[in-house]
Amino acid sequence: MLFATRRSFNATKNILTNNPSSVTRYLSIKSATEPPAKWRDGFYKREDWLRFVMQEASTNEVLIYVHGFNTTQAGNLRRLDKIKAGLKAQGYKGAVIGFDWPSSGNPLDYDGDLGRAKQTAQYLISELAIPLMFLPERPKVHLLAHSMGGYSVLKGLQDMGDSKGPGNWALDQVVFASADVHQPSMERGAWGALIMRHRSKRFTNYYSGDDNVLKLSKFINGTRKRVGRAGLPSPAFSTHIDVSCTAQFRRDETNLPDISFLSHRWWFESAPFYKDLALTLAGKDGFSSGTRLKGPGRDFTLNVS
């Protein structure tokens, strides 16, 4: 299991903490449930670690998963493991890796997590996505962001700007699920939408109107709607795709495990979601492939069960 982290390392206690680090560390561990006896045993130089990433892929593509608010490191690794297994079952053959920013894993620490996500966002792009894109293999690099991870992606892309980085570059597929992002920022012409159009080949927003965590976030953020619960605003750019998953969640709900914040985290337990996600990462049209129905306007509805 491969991931990069901006959590600081406490050498005395041999733990990765919930505090931001001044460096990015690159780790390889056997599994989410069996980390190395000493965390430092899992640290690698970036050039070696990047080679491990490409060795994991059977195709020339890499998916970076970016976790959200209220996520412990252990919880993040378990979810990364689920994503790898879920996509593999649907035929995805690229590497799946993680970017671990220092969420406290405390549901009452929203503002603290937002600050740490903001502080570390640039390193997701400058020290992970761009180094991957400019490897000799020139792999396609995708991003999958959950919850506050969506904000982290937008902030990271914004912080890079046009004056930083190795010339012109763009991610391939960028995917949000339950993104805790202000809806107005993704309207055509708004800052978030402009950044996403400039720095990705295609952007897909999966959302659910039953997401209770984002219902609360809406009020924390001055009643501003979240794209992970309300969808993208209109008008949107033609390469920005909205997929409503409310009906799919309701079909899945009774068969899903009893986990905390289920309406916000159900994606990682859902084979139908992984089926459509695998097609999205392949650059395919879910409607033509039969995993989506056309909804009102330009919207789609997940239709895979």
Rank of each mutant, 00 (worst) to 15 (best):
I15S: 01
E34S: 11
E269D: 09
L144K: 06
D162P: 12
L87M: 07
K155D: 07
S8E: 09
K284Q: 10
P235L: 08
L128Y: 08
F268E: 14
A117L: 10
G68C: 11
Q73I: 09
D111K: 15
T5Y: 03
D113C: 11
G286Y: 02
Q183N: 13
M186W: 01
A271R: 13
Q158W: 03
F300V: 03
L144A: 01
Q55A: 10
A57R: 15
L108M: 13
N14W: 01
A129D: 05
W101Q: 01
D172T: 06
N255I: 09
L194D: 12
P166A: 01
F268V: 13
G86A: 01
I29K: 06
L144D: 03
Q55Y: 08
K294M: 05
A236L: 12
G222F: 02
P139K: 09
T204K: 07
R6P: 04
F99T: 06
G290E: 04
V175I: 11
F268C: 12
S103W: 03
L63F: 13
P184V: 00
R40Y: 07
P184N: 03
V175H: 00
A177R: 08
E137H: 10
F237V: 12
S178I: 01
T204I: 12
Q248M: 14
T301A: 09
G297C: 12
A4N: 09
K140L: 00
A282H: 09
R197A: 09
A4I: 07
P257V: 08
L87S: 06
A117R: 14
F273Y: 11
G165E: 03
P102W: 01
A179V: 07
K13C: 07
V53K: 09
Y274H: 11
L87F: 01
A282K: 11
K225F: 04
W191K: 14
L279F: 00
V96H: 05
T291L: 01
S200Y: 06
G105D: 07
V243W: 04
A74V: 12
N19S: 06
A95S: 11
W39G: 00
T71L: 05
K118I: 08
R292V: 00
H67L: 08
A85L: 05
S289Y: 04
L154A: 00
Q173F: 02
L302G: 08
S58D: 14
F268K: 13
I259D: 10
P233H: 09
L302M: 08
Y207G: 02
H146A: 00
T71Q: 13
V243C: 13
N19F: 01
Y206I: 09
L143F: 06
E253S: 15
A145N: 11
D299S: 14
G290M: 05
G189S: 08
D159P: 10
S244Y: 03
L135M: 06
W101E: 02
L154K: 05
E61Q: 15
K218M: 12
A85R: 12
S28M: 04
Y207L: 00
T246I: 04
H182S: 13
R78Q: 10
Y92L: 00
K82E: 10
K294L: 05
